[in-house]
Design a protein around this nucleic acid. Structure first.
Length: 282
DNA sequence: CCCCAGGCGAAAT
DNA sequence: ATTTCGCATGGG
């Protein structure tokens, strides 16, 4: 792939690449030895690195495409994470350690459809295998972008491309029992489109997808629709809420209510700091 | 060999 | 309305 362009954003705060890419929100970015990352977003392959300069930093994106506006939006550079951190800490001091350690998290502005499919695949699965499944889907059904930094890269398959997949084909991709969910998703998306309305209305609409339950719906709200009120509770978050606040492990409703009352419209942001911090501790 | 993973759908209470 | 169970696959 020739014709690589370089986009640079300076004077940034509240961004660290491992925090952004390893906090569990995305599955197509992989770390290089020097701490930079290579991945695919919006049909573009990219090599992303960060330069620290005093108390600010610069983001350098070498990519096969995508406008400056696209990447600016993708990395959510208009959002003031410092202000959100202060608001969260004011309401819940126990977040201090997580926010401090995971200070560079940003919620990527990802494609709704990609997030929808990715988190359907994520259920009852581990992150390394989820990443393999997603890459396999892209390689088998996505548009070839071309060779980029030593490997052929593929866009995430569109709904139309994935609609061509059959149960038998998907069985070869080792998705497990989730292949039936992926067969039904393109048709459902074509009929219903992107959810709109209140958080509750969007959540309910997402539950009508086969393979989407309360937790996956909250991930799609947060990462695919940028609804920061969504507070996904997976097995890790359950353990965290037990440790931090003494909840019974089965009291999901209580945990959701607590998040509503203490984190409010920033519940998803709080969840990401907590989730990544406790996972990084193992 | 076992248990577990960013849970969910369907069956059984 | 709520709880239980089976589920494909691979990592640890």
């Amino acid at each position: 792939m020739n014709d690589i362009k370089v986009i640079r954003f300076d004077n940034l705060h509240d961004i660290e690449l491992p925090h952004v890419f390893e906090c569990g929100q995305c599955f197509r970015w992989n770390e290089c030895e020097d701490g930079s990352y290579i991945g695919v977003a919006g049909g573009h392959a990219a090599h992303v690195s960060l330069e620290h300069d005093g108390d600010s930093c610069s983001l350098i994106i070498e990519c096969t495409g995508g406008s400056e506006e696209y990447w600016h939006s993708y990395f959510d550079l208009d959002t003031d994470y410092g202000a959100m951190k202060r608001a969260l800490l004011a309401g819940e001091p126990k977040l201090a350690k997580s926010i401090d350690v995971c200070h560079g998290i940003r919620i990527l502005n990802q494609d709704y459809w990609e997030v929808l499919i990715s988190f359907i695949v994520s259920q009852n699965n581990n992150i390394p295998r989820i990443k393999k499944c997603i890459e396999s889907l892209a390689k088998n059904y996505g548009t070839e972008i071309g060779e980029f930094m030593g490997e052929v890269r593929y866009a995430f398959p569109t709904p139309e491309q994935l609609s061509k997949a059959t149960l038998e084909e998907l069985a070869d991709l080792k998705l497990g029992y989730r292949n039936a969910y992926l067969v039904s998703a393109p048709k459902h998306f074509a009929e219903h489109g992107v959810p709109t309305g209140t958080t509750e209305e969007k959540h309910k609409a997402l539950l009508s997808y086969l393979g989407v339950g309360p937790k996956v719906a909250n991930c799609i709200l947060l990462f695919g629709l940028r609804d920061f009120t969504a507070f996904p509770i997976d097995i890790w978050m359950k353990k965290i809420m037990v440790d931090l606040y003494g909840f019974d492990i089965k009291d999901i409703k209580g945990m959701q209510k607590f998040a509503d009352e203490h984190f409010g419209e920033l519940g998803g942001i709080a969840q990401q700091y907590l989730f990544y911090y406790y996972r990084s501790m193992q």
